[in-house]
Nucleic acid binder design. Sequence first.
DNA 1: CCCTTTCTTGAGCAATCATTCAAGTATATA
DNA 2: TATATACTTGAATGATTGCTCAAGAAAGGG
Lengths: 201, 201
Amino acid sequence: MPRKPNYDRNALIDRARDLFWKQGWAGTSLKDLERTLGLNPGSFYAAFGSKNALFELALDRYAEGGVSRLNALVEEFGALGALQRYPSLVIDPSSASAKACMLAKTVLELKDQEEDLAACANAHLSNMETLFAALFREAQAAGQIAQSYDAETLARRYQSDLLGLRVTAERSDVSAEAIAQEIAESLVRLADKKPRQSATG
Amino acid sequence: MPRKPNYDRNALIDRARDLFWKQGWAGTSLKDLERTLGLNPGSFYAAFGSKNALFELALDRYAEGGVSRLNALVEEFGALGALQRYPSLVIDPSSASAKACMLAKTVLELKDQEEDLAACANAHLSNMETLFAALFREAQAAGQIAQSYDAETLARRYQSDLLGLRVTAERSDVSAEAIAQEIAESLVRLADKKPRQSATG
DNA sequence: CCCTTTCTTGAGCAATCATTCAAGTATATA
DNA sequence: TATATACTTGAATGATTGCTCAAGAAAGGG
């Protein structure tokens, strides 16, 4: 009997994700959202409940996108190939509304102010790290990376490099692409060499 | 004839720097500042002019501290020694009010909203990169790093790794220290090996 | 002690914040 | 076509934002 909303909720979440990604949590007012989504306050709150609820949906949507882009690379290029190409993909100027990782931005901005949202972003980052570790293990099983490395350690370092790359990309497109290449090349060097037991102080 | 302020302006800037560092620009209200600095609105505006003006002072102060800590390491351990120790120093839990770089946080938060402040942070980051490059050149002159590397490229990559490390440190103290060690060790490997001309797509 | 100069106080400003809600509008079923 | 059910509208809420300014308090020089 009722009436259907005259908007595509899914598309609205995408647009909200892009806006939050670019402007951050505090930097995005409800007026901004109303304008970008074409929604009046009443409709907005009927659809999403609150600004924070929509932000969490945007985080989930963002993380989803990252995972599926990574999986697409795996299908086409295999585990190691995906790990090598992901850095370049993620700072591709033509792709997204921002370079820096939205999850990292959220943790940095909201750690002290909105624990719940920061925790959500953190969980998504941990999940990505787990995916990376699985890919490193796969590359090891394929003999492309020496068994002597710990996949979890490699994944942590890889994610850290990725986060740095994406911060750098927010500052300068040119030097970022070179760094992305270096990250990819460094993975090749893990094939033969064995890691030392760290003893440096 | 006049009266002297009953506060230490320098100390206030330090405290403001710590607060802005932890909470960000939007996350720090004037009420927060008044409380932390022990200043009423009138005194605050007499002393600093505006919230943004104080934020810029805080950025300068922050950058100053980074430079002088790096220089102290250089005096004690030389160029390469400083580059190796700086990552660990910068995420030392006992040192600072936050792990992530305040300059990077500022760029990420304010790039689209407060161009002037973001540009200021950006300039400080570029300055640090220049310092890193000089240290890499010094290490090359001392025969500790192969001449075939480009010091500017090494500096850019080093800074990017550092930024990633500090974002990671904001999430987990334990894995960050391990990454800091890896960054230090990777510098040693630059001694003998020659870089390939990058040709990977 | 007086006077000038500066600093401190805190009430108050307009603007903006996220959010609510009552009234009006459209639509699918009967 | 009537009715029930949602959705849309937009004015209004109280809280908070960064900031101003007039009035009062303190302290140096004479």
